[in-house]
């Protein structure tokens, strides 16, 4: 009972911290200075139609780089913690239904295409590298669930991951050399506003982020799943 009482006290403390957010809200219509600055200058400076993408990749690009690094660290830790020791997990008689099996094979390329579409158009429409990477990981998850593959090629996956991480930093350094600074995408031509090949290096950077996030999330899913040998599946 004393534990519950302490929990209630902690909850009251948290409520006291959160109360100012509810009571003192921004009442004015205008946006804060930094936000209106971004909205005013970003379309002309970057040529990206989606301002959120512009902020993530450029103005807050260093945050994103750090975030990708955190994601990598977390994936590595998950893989380390759940390292397989020998042949654990028994033989499962479970088999995916025929609909899941054939539907998975049919949908997989479409899902991958959709994911690539999302991260290529990140600077024009909602979406981008993170969402596209997740969609790609979902496609591989479907492949796993339908039982048509039993394991992924780890060499290819780590190759994709290290290549995209390396290329991300390389593009950022290119901005340092040929443009105003680290992660500045303006060393590539800005192009016509609203076209696929526009906004400098933003689509390049976001595609690399998409590949990296996709590879890392597939790594997490691959490490978390229960490894069972399925009978009757010849992958």
């Amino acid at each position: 009972m004393i534990k519950r009482f302490l929990a209630i006290i902690a909850l009251l403390g948290a409520a006291a911290v959160l109360l100012p957010f509810v009571l003192k809200l921004p009442t004015e219509e205008a946006l804060p200075g930094l936000a209106s600055e971004y909205i005013e200058n970003a379309p002309g400076e970057l040529g990206a139609a989606n301002l959120v993408t512009g902020i993530i990749v450029t103005y807050r690009g260093l945050d994103t780089l750090g975030e990708v690094a955190v994601l990598f660290a977390a994936t590595a830790a998950v893989g380390l913690l759940l390292k397989r020791t020998g042949n654990e997990g028994g033989v499962s008689h479970w088999r995916a239904s025929e609909i899941l099996e054939s539907g998975g094979g049919f949908l997989f390329p479409l899902i991958i295409l959709y994911g690539v579409y999302i991260f290529l158009h990140g600077h024009l429409t909602p979406g981008g590298g993170f969402q596209g990477g997740v969609v790609i990981a979902t496609g591989f998850l479907l492949l796993l669930l339908s039982g048509s593959v039993n394991s992924f090629n780890h060499t290819v996956m780590s190759l994709v991951e290290s290549f995209s991480g390396f290329a991300y930093v390389a593009v950022a350094l290119a901005g340092l050399i040929w443009a105003a600074g680290f992660l500045d995408p303006r060393f590539l031509p800005q192009g016509d506003f609203g076209r696929l090949f526009s906004a400098g290096a933003i689509p390049v950077i976001y595609s690399l982020i998409g590949l990296k996030v996709g590879a890392e999330l597939i790594g997490i899913l691959d490490a978390m799943r229960c490894k069972v040998r399925r009978e009757g599946v010849t992958a």
């Binding site: 930094l34 936000a35 971004y38 959120v52 902020i55 945050d63 975030e67 955190v70 994601l71 993170f130």
Partner: peptide
């Protein structure tokens, strides 16, 4: 747009 950008990365983390 700044909260959107911050939350987007926070969700992935």
């Amino acid at each position: 747009p700044i909260p959107s950008a911050l939350v987007l990365t926070a969700i992935v983390i």
